[in-house]
Amino acid sequence: MNAPDGLPILEARGLTRRFGGLVAVDDFSFAVREGAIHGLIGPNGAGKTTTFNVISGFYAPTAGQVLYRGRDISGRKTSALAAMGLVRTFQGSTLFQEFSVLDNARVGRHLGARSGFLSRLLGADRASEAEADARARDALAFFGLEDLADEPVSNLPHGHQRMLGMAVALAAEPKVLLLDEPFTGMNPEETRRMMELVRRIRDDGVTVMLVEHDMQAVMNLCDIITVMNFGALLVEGAPDEVRNDPAVIEAYLGSATGNGGSGNGGSPNGGANGAGDAA
């Protein structure tokens, strides 16, 4: 394992988010080091997606702070955060379903394809659009989707849609990439390929934070893992430490009986299965 020892590029301090009476994220703190692949795991409903939503500016934190390169970014607009290099993907296939595959990636290239209003009208944006097109195709090629560029998204199988979601995010040239359950709905072969690609993204200088239920993937891929339960920090450490931590095993087993199995739909490796891997 290559232990990353850069500075924290992303940090949460005492992060809290309430929905009415429900505390979805509860005084939660963690630090993501630059160049790391950082896992965020926990039973269903632990608050992982909510944490991503707060970090990426979809929700304002009820209390606490998010720091990016040491700067407080809590409550900033999602689009402004993307411009700073903080880009997230979504659980499920959140895509522009009505667009072609290429147009999805072209929207992902929004920030890199700047041009004035008049030059767009007059067609003087051709050079910057050609470049955006090329970069969008690069992002598709990275995930092996280049041959599907002109297909409508709705024709893609689920696994490809998940990859396209990452291609859209990658086209935005992130510094920090937040992946919400990137392997859900993928077969084992696709998962293996995606893990390799996530490593390559990191090797290209992108810090990755990911939420995932597939424990085997998480353990293999991540340099460090933060476990949350009931919105709060449970354990943090290297995969080996986390794997054997009694509190983690307890949390997963507890949720497995509590939820009556895996709550996350079509995943081949839901929370309950994950507990088996962790034990």
């Binding site: 999602t78 767009r120 995010a169």
Partner: peptide
């Protein structure tokens, strides 16, 4: 002018906001 706007990236961005405004935001669309 309206046609040119729609056929340009501005039009693409308008459509993107219509279909998935959260995804559009996440890649930097204000």
């Amino acid at each position: 002018v309206l046609y040119r706007i729609e056929r340009s990236r501005i039009g693409l961005t308008f459509h993107a906001i219509h279909w998935q405004d959260r995804l559009a935001e996440s890649v930097g669309v204000d």
